[in-house]
């Protein structure tokens, strides 16, 4: 005879399994997301160059020798009042000037960093150096009143390239504020965290010990819960899975490596 308790238990199991499926699938997707390893030192950008318009563009040459470039972040400010304003960003081979990747970005008031990711640019494609340029979008021109500017730095913080204004080299000690990255898999990304020197060992057994200790403690507690001494286990599992699902399914909002950055894809 199926009574109310049976139905409740069935419902709980079904919801639990559904949530578990959601979490596992999102975790699986998460591990396949490209991770970015930063190349060279980032340049912050304290001074603004602009306003960008159809006659004024800025750019920066970047050396990519021996690396495959997959993402460049630039610091762009928009202080105008129009609802929809676009800037055009193009990555060209240098010095040949052949267009490799390009796209438009809708600017957000007050946002600073824009992350431009694109299919990787190999050294064969670029020849070892690229020019990243920000200019007005053809057909959707920027005017001076839009107050769009790109940030740069003095004192030559980046020796591998130089800043360009209106297609011409700017002062030799100026560089745009930028960060550049290459895309890697999760495994390579984790492998790049090298903190072992602090512990004076070259083996990751300490991480293993930490993880083992953490899970051992968790198992001790869950076992106690499962034995019926604590009926709250279902609430815990439910809330954990709910929050995990939310966290993993809103990666742009929560689990975002550059939370204050606007992400833009270039083709």
């Amino acid at each position: 005879m199926i009574d109310r308790d049976h139905l409740l238990r069935l419902g709980r199991w079904i919801s639990m399994l559904a949530l578990l499926g959601v979490c596992i699938s999102s975790l699986f997707n998460w591990t396949k997301v490209p991770w970015f390893i930063q190349l060279d030192k980032p340049v912050t950008g304290s001074f603004s160059a602009g306003p960008i318009n159809q006659f004024f563009s800025v750019g920066q040459t970047l050396t990519t020798a021996a690396n495959e470039l997959s993402r460049v972040d630039l610091k762009i400010a928009y202080g105008g009042e129009r609802d929809s304003v676009f800037a055009h960003v193009e990555v060209k081979s240098f010095p040949k000037g052949r267009s490799l990747r390009s796209g438009s970005v809708e600017l957000v008031p007050r946002k600073a960093w824009y992350s431009f990711s694109f299919p990787r640019i190999t050294v064969d494609e670029s020849g070892g150096q690229v020019l990243v340029e920000v200019r007005s979008v053809p057909g959707r021109s920027l005017s001076d009143r839009d107050l769009v500017s790109v940030f740069y730095e003095h004192r030559d913080p980046y020796a591998g390239g130089r800043m360009y204004v209106r297609g011409m080299p700017a002062r030799a000690d100026w560089d745009l504020g930028f960060r550049m990255y290459k895309a890697v898999g999760l495994r390579e990304a984790l492998g790049s965290i090298k903190n072992w020197h602090l512990l004076g060992i070259e083996a990751p057994w300490v991480i293993g010990f930490g993880l083992a200790s953490f899970f051992f403690g968790l198992c001790l507690w869950l076992r106690r819960c499962m034995n019926g001494q604590n009926p709250q286990v279902w609430t815990v599992v439910f809330v954990v899975l709910m929050l995990a699902a939310v966290a993993l399914y809103v990666p742009e909002a929560i689990a975002n490596p550059a939370i204050s950055t606007v992400h833009v894809g270039l083709q």
């Binding site: 300490v206 953490f214 106690r224």
Partner: peptide
Amino acid sequence: PLLAVITLAIGIVVLWIAL
């Protein structure tokens, strides 16, 4: 439960220190 709490805490802090 106290042993579980201590073990968990040690695990957490060791991971933080190491990473």
